[in-house]
Design a protein around this nucleic acid. Structure first.
Length: 362
DNA sequence: AACCCGGGGGG
DNA sequence: CCCCCAGGGTT
């Protein structure tokens, strides 16, 4: 199969099978850009409602640039990889200040923006401006390693560069927008990680993995490291007027710019109650009494997992200071939903607002 | 090159 | 339980 046949078969299949998506067919480069940031390491179904909400809140790059970071993070709450939201917001300001609010059309220029790497630069310039830059994402890696029978580790930079070269060689310069999206669509719905449906594939006749029955072993990925597990104690300090203390995480930390109930890792030989009291002493400079466990929950982050023990606390002495956070604030229970929280803390806020399901309760 | 960074869905 | 997902930034 030559490059023309490849492209013809692929695009023909795409015309007949492409799924409907809110950003598909969209001409506004800003919306295409937002969709591509949201889709980084995120499934279409998960991103879709966030995209609709985000665009309704920030219809243009100017609206986004003028928004407060807290509003942007609130719109991103629950989607994960929050640096995406911070970088998107930052890049919007750059566009308004230095680019008259317009995304640059060239790969070399657009990749300078925060949060735009090789994938997103190729995606936006091809889809919004019809530039022949080939995208390489997880889908394309799977499709092309199988198609060309690449058996090396797909985690390595060398293999990714090989795949990028294949994609660049294959891209249809007359229709790069559809070519790129068709490659990803094919990887997503036909050339799936397990049980690929090769009988549906428009390029099966040229596929090495299909012909040699190697779709189970290609792409090859070296083993991932095991995720460590931590036990975390967090304290919910309730003042006499009923307000609760929340803290704003440092800008450059994990989950930066989101709010939380202060706490930290349990040490060896330490009761979890002591963990909570020690952590709050360290982070707020106060003495507290952890008097009642509110709930426990398990949560998995990208590189570790936790069991979180949440304790209700009373202030014994001292005035809380933001020693390890940007800011601390006393808030009513019904005000908690105004603030962006990471998932594990979000579960706590819902319990505290009486909206918890209770299945994780102790 | 290695590591860090969320959360959800599917097998 | 594991893997994967329209990756990017930092060191």
């Amino acid at each position: 199969m030559n490059n023309n046949d490849f492209s013809h078969h692929l695009l023909s299949w795409y015309q007949d099978h492409k799924r409907q998506m809110p950003w598909r067919g969209e001409a506004d480069p800003y919306k295409i850009w937002v969709s591509e940031i949201m889709l980084q390491q995120t499934r279409v179904d998960q991103a879709t409602p966030y995209f609709q909400n985000f665009i309704s809140l920030f219809p243009t790059v100017f609206d986004l640039a003028n928004a407060e970071q807290q509003e942007v993070l609130k719109a991103w709450e629950g989607l994960g990889y929050y640096s995406r939201a911070r970088n998107l917001h930052s890049a919007a300001k750059t566009l308004v200040q230095d680019y008259n609010g317009k995304l640059p059309e060239s790969y070399d220029e657009i990749i300078k923006l925060k949060g735009i790497g090789p994938y997103t630069a190729a995606a936006v310039t091809s889809i919004a401006f019809n530039k022949p830059n080939a995208v390489v994402d997880g889908n394309v890696i799977r499709v092309l390693t199988r198609y060309f029978g690449v058996e090396e580790d797909v985690r390595s930079t060398k293999t990714k560069n090989r795949v990028q070269d294949f994609a660049t060689e294959l891209i249809d310069e007359d229709n790069p927008a559809d070519f790129n999206q068709a490659m990803m669509e094919l990887g997503s719905v036909v050339c799936k990680p397990t049980n690929p449906e090769c009988y549906k594939c428009p390029i099966q006749s040229g596929c090495v993995a299909a012909k040699t029955a190697k779709t189970d072993t290609i792409p090859y990925k070296s083993p991932a490291k095991k995720k460590p597990h931590h036990t975390i104690g967090v304290g919910i300090i309730e003042a006499e007027d009923g307000k609760l203390l929340i803290a704003l995480r440092p800008e450059d930390a994990m989950l930066g710019g989101l709010w939380e109930f202060p706490g930290g890792k349990q040490k060896e030989g330490e009761e979890i109650q002591e963990t909570v009291e020690r952590e709050l002493a360290e982070e707020l400079g106060v003495e507290v009494k952890a008097y009642k466990e509110l709930m426990r929950l398990k949560h998995t982050y990208s590189h570790f997992s936790i069991t979180m023990h949440a304790w209700m606390c009373k202030l014994v002495s001292g005035k809380p200071q933001p020693k390890s956070s940007q800011e601390i604030r006393w808030v009513e229970r019904n005000e908690l939903e105004r603030y962006p929280f990471p998932k594990a803390n979000k579960v706590l806020t819902e319990r505290l607002m009486g909206k918890g399901q209770g299945e994780l309760g102790i």
